[in-house]
Design a binder for these strands. Structure first.
Length: 504
RNA sequence: GCCGCGUUGGUCAAGGGGUUAAGACGCCUCCCUUUCACGGAGGAAUCACGGGUUCGAAUCCCGUACGUGGUACCA
């Protein structure tokens, strides 16, 4: 089976969770079957187009590891890949539909449409549609005489082309996730196919593009299901029924209170975009998963299993593993509520499972961003190995690894004070000289000196360890104290103890 | 309003006529650790409701409720 699958983002805003998951499922399905993944840009609505949004989408996909085989960037045999650049080819198909009686010219002005909606609006029908009943009362090539239509067309009158929905038919399609879905054509309106500016609407464009680009499977969000009958009819009316792709309408991703909106990020304190996005209207910067400190592997893993599982207990998947086991039929039909806690768990697991070498670059970057310079690469590697178990998000490395490179600026004095006394102070003063005497600076030696001195002084080593920790790291966290001492070196250890002694 | 889609613990979910109804996140308890974690052992918590069909229903059918999407010259 040859498989070609497409994702069609519109450059109008940030790439949110639902969008990334749609690309992901498209991608996984294509790769699972050894097929191609095509990226087509839906930019037919000039008024909503946002400068820079297209590049932003490419970057997000790159970060996620979802590179298309064909796109405006990568080329291929089926370009152009932007609908605005394919404008010329749509009109021809729309007119074919008109000549075959499956579509018609409509000359109604926006004002006339408003008037129609207002006049027909009732309590029982709050949003009247331009449908088989209404079209008989409007100004279109169905109601006007041929001469009038010809005249209007010759005068270049603004008009659209609408599909002529059949009366009293049932259109059904097989959805790979939901099975058979049927619609009554009477209840679907005469959707505009070609807009007055000559641009196609989504309905015409998907069908034409999918046919011309030889798309075999069309996967998109559930919000498209209600207009699917229009698409099915178009495939039939254009004479391409034999080539119609297999459909799958993916479930929605929901927020804590219903549909996940772009605002929810600010509201609930978690990101909704793959990468940060600046809203051009408000100029507000909305942080993305990347900037929050997520690993792309974790982000993708989390998204993949939000609405899909392979039937086993496995939850942690690499991209290759996802490709190997992905099956569209096992995608849930119900929407899933996004759980940020679980998302963080995935990231924690991925930080733990990734090796030091592949973590190094990101950790260094986040440290430098926080003013911590790392002179010693070998030390960084040891430190990462030591602390990665306790880091959930990348920025956690700042707290858990920062003190290896930079002395703590504040000490949690309150944690020590209640049990602090002259005896302990003397212990540490003596310990400093012991430390200075150590010639082979290693873990076991340091620990032995500490314990021996404690026994000598008749105190419990355990009680002295907490103050020691606070002196070295500033707070109640981090790996074993003597391990820290070993890594930061003799000089630094002594300096930190001396400095802390003055503060206690 | 109408149409579509959906409904298994707080969340993600397995299971699709007979199960003690898996597992994961989160929460709680204990062990490990005189820090924070990791790790280990336990625990609380679920089939939306009402009718059928059946010896037997979370599972099949019909209603209801609720959620969600569509109802644009937006995608």
């Amino acid at each position: 089976m040859s498989v070609r699958v497409r994702f069609a983002p519109s450059p109008t805003g940030g790439l949110h969770l639902g969008g990334v998951r749609t690309v992901l499922y498209n991608y996984l399905f294509a790769k699972h079957h050894g097929g191609e993944f095509v990226l087509r840009i839906e930019d037919t609505d000039q008024s909503r187009f946002v400068a820079g949004a297209e590049e932003y989408i490419f970057e997000c996909l790159k970060w996620c590891g979802l590179q298309p085989d064909e796109s405006p960037l990568h080329g291929g045999d089926y370009g152009p890949y932007r609908q605005s650049e394919r404008k010329a080819m749509y009109r021809k198909y729309a007119e074919t539909l008109v000549t075959h009686g499956h579509a018609y010219y409509a000359f109604d002005t926006p004002e006339e449409l408003d008037k129609m909606r207002e006049e027909n609006r009732t309590e029982k029908n709050p949003s009247p549609q331009y449908d088989h009943g209404i079209r008989k009362k409007m100004r279109n090539s169905l109601t006007l005489s041929d001469d009038e239509v010809k005249d209007l067309l010759e005068k270049d009158t603004r008009h659209v082309i609408r599909i002529k929905m059949p009366e009293n038919e049932i259109v059904s399609l097989t959805d790979m996730i939901r099975g058979e879905v049927s619609f009554q054509t009477d209840l679907v309106d005469d959707k505009v196919l070609l807009k007055a500016d000559g641009m196609p609407t989504y309905h015409l464009a998907v069908v034409v593009d999918d046919y011309l680009m030889k798309i075999t499977h069309a996967f998109r969000g559930e919000e498209w299901l209600p207009s699917a009958p229009v698409h099915v009819l178009l495939w039939k009316y254009l004479g391409w029924e034999f080539a119609m792709p297999k459909w799958a309408h993916l479930p929605l991703i929901l927020g804590p209170n219903g549909k996940l909106s772009k605002r929810d990020g600010a509201k609930y304190g978690f990101p909704v975009f793959a990468m940060s996005w600046t809203d051009p209207k408000t100029n507000e910067l909305i942080e993305g998963f990347k900037e929050k400190g997520f690993l792309p592997e974790a982000f993708i893993n989390m998204l993949a299993v939000l609405g899909w599982n392979d039937g086993t207990e496995k939850e942690l998947y690499s991209m290759d593993e996802l490709i190997a086991s992905f099956d569209m039929k096992r995608v849930h039909s119900a929407g899933a509520k996004f759980d940020y806690e679980k998302a963080k768990w995935f990231n924690h697991e991925w930080i733990k499972r990734k090796d030091v070498q592949s973590l190094k670059y990101d950790v260094r970057a986040i440290m430098e961003l926080n003013g911590i310079t790392i002179p010693d690469d070998a030390l960084l590697e040891k430190v990462i190995e030591l602390v990665k178990d306790r880091c959930i998000l990348l920025p956690d490395f700042v707290q858990h690894a920062g003190f290896f490179f930079k002395a703590p600026t504040t000490l949690d004095v309150d944690a020590v004070k209640p049990k602090w006394n002259e005896e302990k102070k003397l212990f540490f003063e003596e310990f400093i000289s012991k430390l200075n005497g150590i010639t082979n600076w290693e873990l076991g030696v340091i620990e032995n000196e500490f314990k021996n001195l404690a026994t000598e002084k008749n105190s419990k080593p355990g009680e002295l360890q907490l103050p020691m920790r606070i002196m070295l790291v500033g707070g109640k966290f981090g790996p074993a104290v003597f391990q820290i001492a070993e890594l930061i070196g003799k000089e630094e250890t002594v300096t930190r103890v001396e400095k802390a002694l003055k503060e206690f």
